[in-house]
Design a protein around this nucleic acid. Sequence first.
DNA 1: GCATGATCATGC
DNA 2: GCATGATCATGC
Length: 440
Amino acid sequence: MELDYDASSKASILATAKKLTGKTLNESCTIPREIQNKANKGDLGILVENYFFGINPGNSAKPDFPEAGLELKTTGLVRRRDGSLKAKERLSLTSLNFMEIVKEDWITSTFVRKCSSMLLLFYEYVKDSSVIDRKFIIDPMVYELPPEDLPQLKRDWETIQKKILDGKAHELSEGDTFYLGACRKGSGGPDEKLLSQPFSEIKAKSRAFSFKPSYLDVIINAHLNSLPSISSTGSETIEGATYKRFSKYLGKTIDEISRDVNYFRSSVNHKSFNRTLAERILSSEGSSYKELTKAGIQMKTVVLQPNGTPKESMSFDVFEYMKIGQEFWETSDFCASLEQKVLFVVFQDGRDGTRRLSKVAYWNMPYQDREEARRVWELTQARVAVDASNLPKTRDSRVAHVRPKGRNAADVLPTPQGTNLTKQCFWLNARYIGEIIQNL
DNA sequence: GCATGATCATGC
DNA sequence: GCATGATCATGC
């Protein structure tokens, strides 16, 4: 390797990495033929290390550039419809070792040792192209864990550690945490090898620490816009910041809140009014709503009837009858939604006709219930193939059902039976939502 | 009173 | 023009 750089200097490594900008790896260095031929898959990061930087860090607990304390990561970007760039997927950071993490502290953890400082290289993802032919479309950056995000990252790490201490590695979910996720590793297929965990006999899927896509997007946006850093919860965790924001409105009527945030119901049929009110509350004093985006949290508003149960079920994304047959639960939209953390903003209708903000709480779906949702999804998948007009109803599951969701009855999609049916989506049962909210 | 089907306003 | 989050409307 003829490149001359100082492997103990972040600045020197970054300057060298910038030579990749606008090029592919294949254009930037010499890659042996046998690698070229099988380079469709594989890890671009390792190839950059081996053939561009001329290093071979292997599978170590140390960063890839140990003297500089810098870990190298490559990550794919895709374009939104408007042409702007976003992360294709989460950024996998380092494997989660169930046996080791239970002995670690945050400060001395493998994660902090390895990922405190990372060289991020961004390439444009192109389907079916070899990784060595993907272009690094923007400059790389050195990313240091930002001080204002440390409280949340630490909390996330500890949440994951606690689950393993509790013998629940098999129940880990990305919705458990806010910025740092415990994502699944590997294929996820039926022959996936499961791992032992220290405090339970149950085998668990292999996992890695990752930055959630939403968090990664904020990093990318800040980098593209040359913003110094992300923002602003300071010493707070997201939960703390959210509760603080809502606390002054708890118990207030919807009319009082409406006046206070200067947002008014436009018509009797203004179905997203409560939600917009909640968004206004969150963004009323600064940028907390951005924090939610960063953590990939979905906010859901719920109205409870005077008897305490919600009148309505909760809808998710529309699915396509023609596509669900080829999908897998683990990569489905519904599964992804259920692994997200939810911020419930709860309004209570009184017998006197008032509606008040009564409760704000974070929640994510427990493992057992996700498994039940999976059953409903798989049942739906099987039924769509046979008769898309006969899908799981409320009585078929305590957790979820399938129901129309469209602009009107003419808003349809084609089915495998050759018919067109109203668009439908998965819903969480109103009764199930009621139980959750009672226990928050 | 609940399950199911149908639809609305908004914002991008 | 459409996806989205949410709620309305009807029938049993």
